[in-house]
Simulated assay, not measured.
Amino acid sequence: MSDRIVIYQKPTCSKCRATLSLLKERGEEFESINYYKTPLTAERMRELIQKLDIPVRDLLRKDEPSAGNLSAATDDEIIKAMVENPDLIQRPIVVRGSKARLCRPPENVMELLK
């Protein structure tokens, strides 16, 4: 697989740092996007969810206080909330080509490196 690797992350997140370390240890070239400095759009969120091949709710950090308000929300409402409040997004998300993985645990990134 020769597709470029992109990691969507938050620098203070321990899982993000561990995933970055795994990529560096393997000598992989990648682009790192801090989605707090470069916010994700609703369209990009939909693309990531499609590549992750998971339900929208699986990308929602349910332990965040503001997530409680989303229990009856539609997928579009959840995506809008995640765009407006990036703390609601599970992280890190690593993309390679047409596939993506939620790297919780960080070792999930290895599935994209085969």
Rank of each mutant, 00 (worst) to 15 (best):
E25C: 03
P11E: 10
C13G: 08
P106I: 09
I5M: 03
S71V: 06
R4K: 15
I33M: 05
N108M: 11
I5W: 03
A42P: 07
P106R: 12
T38A: 11
R91Y: 02
I78S: 03
G97M: 11
E28F: 03
K10G: 04
G27I: 09
L102C: 09
R4F: 12
R104C: 03
N85Q: 10
P86Q: 07
L88W: 07
E25M: 09
I93N: 01
I54T: 13
C103S: 09
E64H: 03
P92L: 10
S2V: 13
F30G: 11
D63K: 15
L88G: 07
E47S: 13
I78Q: 05
V83Y: 01
N69L: 14
K10T: 14
E31F: 09
G97S: 11
D3G: 04
T74Y: 08
P55C: 00
E28L: 08
N69C: 04
Q50F: 01
R46F: 00
I93S: 03
K37T: 02
K114N: 11
I78H: 04
S32R: 09
V109N: 02
M45G: 02
R17I: 15
S71Q: 10
I7H: 07
D3L: 11
T12M: 04
R44M: 08
T19S: 06
R44K: 14
A42N: 10
A81F: 00
T74A: 13
G27F: 04
I7D: 05
R46G: 01
M45F: 13
I7V: 15
